[in-house]
Design a binder for these strands. Structure first.
Length: 188
DNA sequence: GGGGAGATTATCT
DNA sequence: GATAATCTCCCCG
């Protein structure tokens, strides 16, 4: 009987390594979710991070330690889901391949096309019904289920999307060839 | 299939 | 008062 990987140890590593290793991981909320297909890393030392200027009421959960969730409202409309690492670093979950609870996702999104259910940070938050009530919770306790990948998928890397600061850093990671990404990676 | 405008609100200057 | 880790719809081709 193999020992299950320790979740805190998984997230207590360099944030770009965690972002890459999250690809292929299983994540569900109340049995709704699938396989993480796209992530972005954020570190307090670069200005795109919400933790760049230190702790504030909004980003408090970024400092709870490895294995917690950071959920924030984006553009006053959408919710975005992050997994916290060490020292205020966090990984934004940008896309999930829907596998479980697809019916409920389709209802929440008002869409039938599986490809569009979770292909973006705001979309997947709506599909999984992620909200402020999940900010600061542990990823390895109900209503969540988290399981790291058993074998690493092929990875593509590129610059992060939708930001103006530190936009040159290649800190976006995706499963190569996945049909469920928020946007294609530029070849090269 | 691609580009641009608008929606909407918490947070910080 | 400006900004923001986004999404959808509309127009054009």
């Amino acid at each position: 009987m193999p020992t299950l990987p320790d979740t805190t140890a998984f997230f207590n590593r360099e944030v770009t390594a965690v972002a890459r290793d999250l690809l292929g991981a299983e994540f569900t909320l109340d049995g709704v979710g699938g396989i993480i297909a796209e992530t972005e890393a954020y570190h307090p030392t670069e200005p795109a991070s919400h933790a760049h200027r230190g702790p504030t009421p909004r980003n408090a959960s970024m400092f709870l330690g490895p294995g917690h969730l950071y959920v924030y409202r984006s553009y006053g409309i959408h919710w975005c889901l992050n997994f916290v690492c060490a020292d205020g670093a966090a990984v934004l979950i940008r896309a999930i391949e829907p596998l479980e609870g697809i019916e409920r996702m389709a209802e929440r999104r008002g869409l039938a096309n599986r490809r569009d259910l979770c292909s973006g940070p705001g979309k997947l938050a709506q599909a999984l019904a992620v909200g402020k009530q999940h900010d600061g919770l542990r990823i390895d306790a109900p209503p969540f289920r988290f399981r790291p990948p058993e074998s690493p998928p092929p990875v593509v890397i590129g610059p992060r999307i939708g930001i103006t600061k530190a936009a040159d850093l290649p800190w976006r990671f995706g499963i190569a060839g996945s049909a469920f990404l928020s946007k294609a990676f530029r070849p090269g």
